[in-house]
Design a protein around this nucleic acid. Structure first.
Lengths: 223, 223
DNA sequence: GTCTATATAATGATAGAC
DNA sequence: GTCTATCATTATATAGAC
């Protein structure tokens, strides 16, 4: 499958061209902001043909959703086969096409079933890896491994969802092969660095306990 | 200002009720998915009154944007005054109302000028803190402090943008006072933990160098 | 498969009464 | 300030020709 979306427009069937055009518009204008007419125009076909191939706008959207999520899964599998050392989804998605990434970013916030499934699968996959870590990765020291896993997934997918802001702040598209290393390096540094003093960490943990109404820990001298 | 959005609907002027209704709809259905008529119905007024107060749909959106971002800034200031130990935006936003958070999540992806400014300000604020860290926080060991800062901002705002998925995966609203501690604790653990072996970190850093076309580091024996 | 033409509904915005 | 009535535009979806 040409899952990355990198292909010449002329080589594609009308159906594929429509799907690609819809992908792009759904990503930039959102689902409701995209019109069948706009898709048809962008694909160089008539509005009637869009309906012919996908039935309704909802059908078109579902087709895009399936296509994007399947493409990303394929990219992820390829990255795994090549033995990528980076455990997250990020390296896989960086290989994808720009529209693919922007579609995912939108879908993560607009409420797409496919994006939700992708996120949940990533959590499950990360959790399995944390329970029996590969060489070079230690088992996390936490009493709540599930929350730990969710927090890690938040890091990866947050980069996707916010890539526009991150790119603007950094001055380079952080999901392009050019800009990605700079952010990735910084993310690893944040992981490795220990900028929080043990006392601060202890205080923060106690504050969280308080929020939950738990009893104070050892050394906690507050009510 | 009732920046948290916690107020009885009866106590509000029609203008405020319209704004709150629009806030809610913009957040859940997006800008293009929201209709003047829908806003009017939700606010219990006529469509004409919406136009009377805000002119156009665009004007209504800008008013919502300004209101939300200003409210969040106010919450942030309050958190700072109270000497919150948590440096990010998260603790402030957790205090806000549910619609406020969902609006921000959408705005971060839909392309809102106000959200972009908020993000950039957060980066600048975090950067200043990193350059002269408060007690308990060490200066990060990085050669790219700006990227480091952006990565940290990504963590905070990523939680907002993805809160729906995080909440689903965790089984509790992670931006409510009930669910927040569990995720926050996990985030701190991810920060503090060192689950990556030095060798793995070294390998990853070299891979990033390669992507950028930099020369190999000391000990790098690959071409 | 692909198009044009059209039915039907919804939307943003305006005008004017109360 | 608040409403109703209305216009012009635009949208989805269908029908049917080629």
């Amino acid at each position: 499958m040409a899952g990355t979306g990198r292909h010449a427009a002329e080589d594609l069937t009308a159906r594929a061209r429509i799907r690609d055009a819809a992908l792009e518009l759904f990503a930039t204008r959102g689902v409701r902001g995209t019109t069948i007419r706009g898709v048809a125009e962008a694909a160089g076909v008539s509005p009637g043909l869009v309906q012919h191939h996908f039935g309704t706008k909802q059908g078109l959207r579902e087709a895009c959703d399936d296509y994007v999520m399947q493409s990303i899964r394929t990219l992820k599998s390829q990255a795994l086969e090549e033995g990528s050392s980076d455990p997250g989804f990020l390296p896989a998605i960086v290989r994808g096409s720009e529209p693919l990434r922007r579609y995912l970013a939108r879908a993560l916030v607009e409420g797409s079933p496919g994006a939700a499934r992708l996120f949940d699968d990533a959590v499950a996959m990360t959790r399995e890896m944390m329970e029996s870590p590969p060489p070079g990765i230690l088992k996390p020291a936490t009493t709540d491994l599930h929350a730990y896993t969710v927090a890690m997934a938040s890091l990866s997918f947050g980069v996707i969802a916010l890539h526009e802001h991150l790119s603007r702040a950094l001055g380079a598209d952080i999901l392009s092969p050019e800009g990605y290393p700079r952010l990735a390096r910084a993310l690893v540094e944040v992981f490795v660095d220990n900028i929080l003093s043990p006392e601060l960490v202890e205080r923060a943990m106690e504050a969280f306990d308080d929020l939950e109404g738990r009893p104070a820990r050892d050394g906690g001298d507050h009510a």
